[in-house]
Design a protein around this nucleic acid. Structure first.
Lengths: 136, 136
DNA sequence: ACACATAATCGTAATGATTCCTATTTACAA
DNA sequence: TTGTAAATAGGAATCATTACGATTATGTGT
């Protein structure tokens, strides 16, 4: 998702544009992978002295609801990244740096749908974990 | 994993058998799906008045290390279930009750391995979420 | 440009899950 | 049966996250 799209989404949905919100978008736009609330907080705190965790979490949730960010649970901690919603795919996630690589394979084909006949399917997750070339 | 195998594993590794440990094994043996530390704690507390969370977590971790239990993060909370290590497979997980159904499909074939050439692959997760027939 | 209503933020307290610590108890090997 | 190391209870501490009242800032209407 591009920066401009994100800004438009905010405006369309009647949310105000603040410098903190802008900066959060900048952060995830620069970063390539999954980042924690704490990592974002520390980045923000280096720019806006005295920023509140409330602001960080409130906006993470907002962006997640708007589909600007996507999230996943790693080691019992929520991680967020810019939503790459151009087409359906999954990720390799580096356990070291959190950076990701697209995997253009999805196991949710008719095979799986058939195996789960009377089951209501809401969502699925396919993630591969390890170390990226840079972190080995 | 059977109850007997679990007991043997404990003994082989030099751990003592206590009534609490036995009861935790009973619990997961009876249960079909993923359960939280809190659910286990409440079950244990109904039998052993005054049981400590420390005991619950210590043994959950121990069983996880020994491969008796497997775990996954759901809604930012760790969930555990008896390890079904007979053959590699994945799970449908009911968001309501935590019960599971095997999925005998795995996307980690050579295709994915090829896509991740210089990447060190340690682990992967494929989970489908929704509601089981009983919970709809 | 100005004022106003409301949304956003701050600072901090509260919560929930999990971990840590010390004194006491227990399993089990000798 | 006894000794010793492991296991447990009880409670404090920690970490991530949420909640909340008071203050500040944005965007709309003038």
């Amino acid at each position: 998702m591009s920066l401009q799209e994100s800004l438009d989404l905010l405006k369309e949905n009647g949310y105000k544009m603040t410098d903190r919100r802008q900066e959060i978008l900048n952060y995830f736009h620069k970063e390539d992978g999954y980042r924690t609330a704490k990592e974002l907080y520390e980045y923000m705190a280096s720019i806006y002295e005295g920023i509140s965790y409330d602001t960080v979490y409130r906006n993470l949730h907002l962006y997640h609801e708007l589909g600007i960010l996507e999230s996943t649970d790693l080691n019992s901690e929520k991680h967020f990244r810019m939503n790459c919603s151009d087409h359906h795919h999954h990720h390799f996630i580096c356990k070291e740096c959190g950076n990701t690589k697209k995997i253009n394979v999805c196991p949710m084909d008719d095979v799986v749908a058939h195996l789960l006949n009377n089951y209501q399917i809401d969502d699925h997750k396919f993630e591969v974990y390890g170390r990226c070339p840079d972190c080995q």
